[in-house]
């Protein structure tokens, strides 16, 4: 192996004698990923969601797990404007990148976020087909919030704390899901409204 290795180096020097100052990286190669406009868009929205996640981490919470879930606003807007597939990308990228940022990748906290995100995406996949004349972002947000907490409680009960005592926390989480789901839905609706009026040039 060693012989082969040095052989390659020799050849490298022979073929490119005066290459970049003794060539710091003899086998330098670049991998080019062709990112489409949609990829850029997903990345941008995921970054916004990530920003909201970081912002939210600074808000003190009375009970671990009770969080406003501001990043879901982004998911809702993306769902309404670009469809479920893009929303799923944004949501899951946010979970992954957020866990890397906070250093809890593959820890229980990561799986809690992931299960919550997956279940709320699943519910949104069905809820998005509700007639939009009657059901707006507020409904979707509430359903997603309930699904989120259901996914998390399932992980907590099945894996982390298999004890009936956690049932006592369910009403608190459910109430929080209802309140924050409504607020997030209203914020999302407000944003979408602004975008629409801007598009039509109405201030």
């Amino acid at each position: 192996m060693q012989d082969r290795g040095s052989g390659i180096e020799d050849r490298e020097e022979a073929t490119a004698p005066n290459s970049v100052r003794g060539s710091i990286l003899p086998h330098q190669s670049s991998i080019l990923l062709n990112a489409t406009a949609e990829d850029h868009h997903i990345a941008r929205m995921a970054a916004v969601a990530l920003g909201l996640t970081v912002l939210e981490a600074a808000i003190p919470s009375p009970l671990p797990g009770v969080k406003p879930g501001l990043a879901n606003i982004v998911t809702l807007i993306v769902l309404a404007r670009y469809g479920w597939r893009t929303a799923a990308w944004v949501s899951l990228l946010r979970v992954l990148a957020g866990s890397l940022l906070f250093g809890n990748f593959l820890t229980p906290g990561f799986f809690l976020s992931l299960s919550g995100a997956l279940l709320s995406l699943l519910v949104l996949a069905f809820a998005q087909h509700l007639p939009s004349r009657w059901f707006g972002p507020v409904s979707l947000s509430i359903y997603a919030a309930f699904a989120h907490i259901a996914g998390q409680m399932a992980i907590v009960y099945l894996w982390l704390i298999p004890h009936a005592g956690i049932a006592y926390l369910i009403p608190i989480f459910a109430a929080a899901a209802l309140v924050f789901g409504t607020v997030n839905g209203l914020i999302a609706a407000r944003f979408m409204d602004n975008e629409e009026t801007k598009q039509f040039g109405v201030p």
Binding site: L130, P131, R133, W134, F135, G136, P137, V138, S139, I142, Y143, L178, T182, G185, L186, A189, R190, D193
Partner: peptide
């Protein structure tokens, strides 16, 4: 921003 069905959801 709350539509009729949203009240039902709430």
């Amino acid at each position: 921003h709350i539509r009729p069905g949203d009240w039902l959801t709430l």
